[in-house]
Design a protein around this nucleic acid. Sequence first.
DNA 1: AAGAAAATTAACCTAAAAGTTAATTAATGT
DNA 2: ACATTAATTAACTTTTAGGTTAATTTTCTT
Lengths: 114, 114
Amino acid sequence: MDNLSDTFFALSDPTRRAILLRLSKGEATVGELAMPFEMSAPAITKHLKILEGSGLIRKEKDGQLRRCILQEKPLKGAVEWLGHYSHFWEGSFAQLDDTLKAMVAGDNAEEDAK
Amino acid sequence: MDNLSDTFFALSDPTRRAILLRLSKGEATVGELAMPFEMSAPAITKHLKILEGSGLIRKEKDGQLRRCILQEKPLKGAVEWLGHYSHFWEGSFAQLDDTLKAMVAGDNAEEDAK
DNA sequence: AAGAAAATTAACCTAAAAGTTAATTAATGT
DNA sequence: ACATTAATTAACTTTTAGGTTAATTTTCTT
């Protein structure tokens, strides 16, 4: 599970982005992740399920705790997709030739067309 | 309107991503954008509203046509946010070039294999 | 002036998101 | 054994996404 739609959807919520940001500084338990937020524990569980479903995190069972660990792969996928547009702000990524863009774009269009 | 949540949400739908990909090759009318899809015109209008609301596109009125134009700013914003995580695949954007080139190399190999 | 075409709006449907509280499972400490 | 803590599941509510068809607005063509 590492679909682009799922990844972007997971990223479209501020709570989930905050969780990811926290996890970028090191793994954390569900309780630790929940702490900064005012919402209920089940709400956090649901957010974590979405993050897990998209592959952005994985959970490791450790006794009664669950340690959450950021996974880079879907983030890479998202950045790569956004890379198609890099020529719109030219320079952030080094020069990618047009054939490259066209090819990648073509691939994704087909893929996206369901 | 250029909120990160809105941007990622807009990107979380394959139809909308396909539309953006199409627009990355040049502006297009609503009708042209709708063509490849089987869904109704109002459905496309809604997708475009979401893209517009997130700032990913803007529309220019031209007679009875509406020309849609990709806007780079929210894409930039998304890439920048993802940049926080670049150390997870260390080397950040410079290395992304290599990744993309590798992708193309892979595509070419497939192409050649035919 | 009338009709066709481009796009949107309106009204509606179904499914899923995002939250809640209450109940449950499973591991821990006394 | 028993109560406590960590986390999840269940059941429910409200809102919104994403699609539909039908109607409307605006522009273009003849």
